[in-house]
């Protein structure tokens, strides 16, 4: 019995059946109730992925703490933060069950006034690097680099209101670069991605793509 359940044909068959049902419903609208049900299951499964994520996070960092690996104290801080945030949230009330207002306020404070500014701050750091690149990396060494520089300057002036104030032509010129040149390139990328996705789907249905089964993908065997 257990050998039958371990056969990889079973999950591949489930994948093929579910994806074909959803696809058929998408194009024909023949089984709306079935597709609704499947999507409902997918949402529930998605929630379990968080449990899986937290479990691996704990396993990895608790091992680091236990072994006193390099920078293990950071792992301890991370675990402490997870618990503080989790319990302040749970005590603050979940799913309509009212909890301790102070705990909810503390949880909101952590999110809005600690986590959000920290993440925004980290990304803002990119701004400093960009200006270093302007200063150190923006060297017109060849014609193609020169074209890139000119386009960069036009788009920078197109986005900022001062560009149009300097010369109204930066508006339509930047819009043309974005709407025609860039969009054309993106269209090509998107078609490529779409074709690639169809190929991966067909490979997965035929059992050649097995990454979702926890195996390394390989060719036909």
């Amino acid at each position: 019995m257990s050998l039958i359940l371990k056969r990889r044909e079973i999950p591949i068959a489930i994948f093929a059946l579910v994806s074909l049902l959803l696809l058929a419903d998408y194009f024909t609208g023949a089984w709306p109730a079935v597709s609704r049900e499947i999507i409902g299951w997918a949402i529930i499964l998605w929630m379990f992925s968080y449990v899986l994520g937290v479990t691996s996070l704990f396993r990895y960092h608790l091992t680091r703490i236990q072994k006193h690996s390099q920078y293990w104290a950071y792992s301890a801080v991370l675990i402490a933060c997870v618990f503080v945030y989790l319990f302040s949230g749970l005590l603050g009330g979940v799913g309509g069950i009212s909890g301790i207002p102070a705990s909810k306020a503390f949880n909101d404070f952590l999110w809005l006034n600690v986590l959000a500014p920290l993440q925004t701050g980290i990304l803002s750091y990119v701004g400093f690097y960009m200006y270093t690149i302007f200063f150190r990396g923006a060297r017109t060494r060849s014609w193609d680099v020169g074209i890139m520089m000119v386009v960069t300057v036009i788009l920078m002036l197109n986005v900022a209101p001062i560009g149009v104030a300097i010369w109204p032509g930066f508006g339509p010129l930047g819009d043309w670069l974005n709407g025609v040149i860039n969009t054309g390139a993106y269209r090509g990328i998107m078609i490529g991605v779409g074709v690639g996705l169809i190929a991966v789907w067909v490979r997965a249905m035929l059992g050649y793509e097995r990454a979702f089964l926890g195996e390394l993908s390989g060719g036909a065997q």
């Binding site: 960069t152 002036l157 900022a160 001062i162």
Partner: peptide
């Protein structure tokens, strides 16, 4: 933020120009 963006972009362009003058 629009004023800051205008000035920031002008500053970026100025850096590109200075860097290229220096390079050339």
């Amino acid at each position: 933020f629009m004023d800051a963006q205008s000035i920031g972009h002008l500053y970026g362009i100025a850096l590109i120009i200075i860097a290229n003058i220096y390079y050339l």
